[in-house]
């Protein structure tokens, strides 16, 4: 390989590694010792399973989990919560910050909408709760049965929105997902970036 080609290859690699140092390695070093936010506990196995459902159903493509500072946008006035800080995400892998708000931010949805019944109905048919919603129906996370067996979680779905006849029962996936959604509550106060800057 000629000098010119070699210089191009090596120079290009050096530049991108430098950029990686700036945008990835330096924040890595800065953030690796961040403590979990006060009151934040690790996910229970069921919550973790619910988070897995959230990830594999692609909720992140319409819902963010990063409320902005009141100085920038009225996220707090919508009930989405205080601006998030790195410690809030201590147990999150993969991250689900999201960059789209076709639907609302969900970082504090558990505090804003604490009713499991509401979430089951909303997941089954979003338009039964919010007529203009464009969210898909997640009826496939529910079973339609003739008889209830012990341990089944029956959810109340109005007959006019029910997809199939029968009694509607939440699958373990739906139950776990709702557990995870209810757990999304980061209302405990922390020192946020804009407060730190104030004298």
């Amino acid at each position: 390989m000629s000098t010119e080609a070699l210089a191009t290859a090596v120079g290009s690699a050096a530049i991108v590694l430098f950029a990686g140092g700036a945008l990835v390695l330096a924040p890595y070093l800065q953030l690796e010792h961040i403590e979990p936010s006060p009151g934040l506990r690790p996910y229970t196995p069921e919550e973790a399973m619910g988070r897995g459902v959230y990830v594999s159903e692609g909720c992140v493509y319409c819902h963010s989990q990063q409320p902005r500072d009141p100085a920038q946008a009225p996220d707090d006035q919508r009930g989405w919560g205080r601006p998030s800080v790195p410690g809030d995400y201590a147990y999150d892998y993969p991250h689900q910050l999201g960059t789209m708000r076709t639907g609302p931010d969900l970082f504090n949805v558990g505090a804003r909408l604490p009713s499991a019944d509401w979430h089951y109905l909303h997941l089954y048919q979003p338009r039964a709760v919010s007529p203009v919603s464009v969210m898909p129906s997640y009826a496939y996370l529910f079973d339609h049965v003739d008889t209830v067996r012990p341990g089944d979680l029956v959810v109340k779905i109005p007959p006019e929105v029910q997809r199939e006849p029968g009694i509607v029962v939440a699958t373990p996936e739906a139950q776990a997902l709702v557990r995870y959604l209810l757990r999304l509550d980061h209302t405990a106060p922390v020192l946020t970036a804009s407060q730190e800057e104030q004298p």
């Binding site: 924040p27 890595y28 961040i34």
Partner: peptide, 12 residues
């Protein structure tokens, strides 16, 4: 990767 740093790698 972890938490917020994961988001940085993601968008980088």
């Amino acid at each position: 990767h972890f938490g917020v740093e994961h988001a940085l790698v993601n968008w980088w």
